[in-house]
Simulated scan of single mutants.
Amino acid sequence: MHTKVALVTGGNRGIGYELVKQLALNGFKVILAGRDPQKGYEAVQKLKESALDVSFLLMDVDREESIRQTAATVDEHYGRLDVLINNAGVYLDEHEQLFSMDPAILKQTMATNFFGVYDVIRYFIPLMTRQGYGRIINISSEYGTLSEMSYPGSGAYKLSKLALNGLTRLAAAEIKGDIKINTVDPGWVSTEMGGPSAPRTPKEAAESILWLATIGPDGPNGEFFRDGKRIDW
């Protein structure tokens, strides 16, 4: 029986760090992927002090070649990937209006929050299809729901998460085998992105996400969740 392998993008802080920690506590070999080597290695070292099976791999989700190389490294060193959590993301526009913001903000947000996830799935899915098993979790937001498009502000972030939700549904329809892909709204979480006044802790957010990492073959696929309950797109 092989130990299952999980990879978390943006895993050196906030929700990502807590996801790495909780997966390792539940017996996974966990790869913490991030684009800052110093922060990544520091986070891994802290987790290893608790005897957790965690390693760091440098991966920048804004660079396709970086993703390709990391996928090849995971294949070479582990030969498998059972759980993939697309957690890395940016929120650059605060409450700016879509057509008054610098267009570069929209392009950068889409590059990270949408195309980065698309490329990560594209390069890592062969490891899952080869074994006929995988669990993919995309970290989204209630800002990505269609109803949120009726309110102004944060347009770049909203559109990136709306596109991510669409990617989740389409990928679920196209990917074959016992591979489940779902998306989760973790709520407003007290992190560097969420700010200190947010009501939820990273641990609470991680618990609302991680149940999808171990669902059985009859579990949900192509759905959107908050706190374990399906929510509307």
Rank of each mutant, 00 (worst) to 15 (best):
M1D: 02
H2Y: 07
V5F: 12
L7D: 07
T9W: 15
G10S: 04
G16A: 05
E18S: 06
A24E: 09
F28R: 02
G34T: 03
V44S: 05
L47T: 03
S50A: 10
S50Y: 11
V54I: 06
S55C: 03
F56C: 02
M59D: 08
D62L: 06
T73C: 10
H77L: 10
H77G: 02
Y78Q: 12
G79S: 12
L81P: 12
G89C: 03
L92Y: 13
E94P: 03
S100I: 01
M101P: 00
D102W: 09
A111E: 13
F114H: 11
V117A: 14
V117T: 15
R130E: 14
G132L: 02
R135H: 14
S141F: 07
Y143T: 00
E148W: 11
Y157E: 01
Y157L: 00
Y157T: 02
K158F: 08
L159G: 04
A163E: 11
N165G: 07
G166N: 13
I175M: 10
K176I: 05
K176W: 14
N182E: 12
N182I: 04
N182W: 14
V184E: 08
G187K: 04
W188T: 01
M193A: 03
G194S: 05
G195Q: 08
S197C: 00
P202Y: 07
P202E: 06
S208P: 04
S208A: 07
L210S: 05
I215W: 11
G216F: 13
G219N: 06
P220R: 03
G222S: 11
R226A: 11
R226E: 15
